[in-house]
Amino acid sequence: MANVITITSGKGGVGKTTATANLGTALAQRGCKVAVVDADIGLRNLDVVMGLENRIVYDLVDVVEGQCRLRQALIKDKRLPELYLLPAAQTRDKNAVDPKDMIKLCDQLREDFDFVLIDSPAGIEQGYKNAVAPADQVIVITTPEVSAVRDADRIIGLLESAEKRSPRLVINRLKPSMVKRGDMMDTADVLEILAIELLGIVPEDDSIVASTNRGEPVALNGKTRAGMAFQNIARRLLGDEVPFPEFNNASGLLGRLWGFVRSRPIDFKARN
């Protein structure tokens, strides 16, 4: 019986689609049968990142509307035989499906797959609600930036009030050198605010851009740092205990700034 995992973030551009493609790839490499679903209707990307754009005939909305069978819309990956993509429609919008449709669709997918990974659109509106409705587990992605962490916090709050199982966190695009200089939030700073279980840390890696443009998920090549990080996350999803690498231990931006000032001024600046 499949595990349905939604990957979401609130903020755009933090790496939801990249993570979905890479986790799907890493899980399929480990012998799992995986379907990746692009829930970003109207702004589809997952097909491009996986290099499968030119094979799309039917899409998610066609399945929901009964224009085709699920099997016809699923695209088999060109490298891994156990990996399938259900692409989003590009000419429609988020209102073309509702949460009930997504639950029904994922129940169908559960029968044939070990993992169903849903790539959520950014935001907290209809598209997000569609993506999260069928999820057994949610992975929240953030980058070590104050704005991304703020949006992740909002998403976690929404998931808690929807009584979903507590989401797990992936911190993406961490730059160890910047953290060391005290110019970037470190893992501890992020976790202090979000206070949820950490599932993975993905370092900033130029090979992501190159591989995304080529349509080959970086996880295919386990030698890159980001590829290795995604492999580690996949192993944790499968229940392995994988230690976190050491690049997250330096004291972060906030700690440093505060460290300089010993005593705390008593008066707040007050204005009437």
């Binding site: 460290g259 300089f260 000032v261 005593s263 008593i266 007050a270 204005r271 009437n272």
Partner: peptide, 28 residues
């Protein structure tokens, strides 16, 4: 009254604190 922490050089709170109004200003 509205107050915000100073923009720069804010010390990290070392323990529990209380904010209240004293002589027409917010003090922590």
């Amino acid at each position: 009254l509205v107050a915000r922490p100073p923009d720069r050089g804010e010390g990290r709170p070392l323990g529990p604190e209380m904010a209240r109004i004293r002589d027409g200003a917010i003090v922590v």
